[in-house]
Simulated scan of single mutants.
Amino acid sequence: MTPADALPGPAGARPDRRITVEAGAVDVLHRLALAVRPLDARNRAAAGPGLRVGWESAPVPGRRRQAPDPARPLEGHGATGFVLRHTAAGALPAAVTVRVDDPARRWIPRRFTVPLWTPAELSGADERPPTAPHIPAESRLLIPWLLPGPGYPVPEGTTGLRLRVTRPDAAATPVRWPRVDAFGPGGVPLGWAHGDEHGQVLLLIDGVGVLPYPAPSRFPVALRTHAPDPPPPAPAGPSSAPSADPLAGLVAEPLARSASPPRPQDLDNEVLRGTARPAGYRTAAADTVRTLTVGRVVHAADLPHTPPDP
Rank of each mutant, 00 (worst) to 15 (best):
G157F: 01
R17A: 12
P109E: 04
A45T: 13
L247M: 04
S57Q: 15
V210T: 15
V98M: 04
A91S: 14
R52N: 12
L147C: 12
T118R: 07
A33R: 02
T113Q: 08
A46N: 07
G50F: 00
T166Y: 01
A120P: 09
T131K: 09
A23M: 09
A47H: 10
D181A: 07
R164F: 00
T275E: 10
I19V: 14
A33H: 03
P264V: 04
R176P: 04
L203Q: 04
H198L: 13
D102R: 04
L272T: 09
V297C: 09
W55L: 01
V53S: 02
L7W: 09
D5S: 11
V21E: 13
N43W: 05
P133G: 10
S240D: 13
A104W: 08
A88M: 08
P153N: 09
D287R: 15
P254A: 13
F82S: 12
D126M: 01
A79K: 15
V294M: 13
L204F: 08
H77S: 11
I19G: 02
G12N: 02
P153G: 10
L142E: 03
A182S: 03
R164D: 02
L92T: 13
E121W: 00
L84D: 01
I108D: 06
I205L: 08
A193L: 11
P68G: 07
V208F: 13
P8N: 08
R106I: 05
P220L: 10
L272I: 10
V180L: 04
G280W: 11
L34Y: 00
V60G: 10
L146K: 12
G76Q: 08
A23Q: 12
P185S: 03
P61H: 00
S123H: 07
P233E: 04
G184D: 02
G160D: 02
R105F: 01
A300C: 07
G90Q: 07
A71D: 15
P109N: 05
A94Y: 08
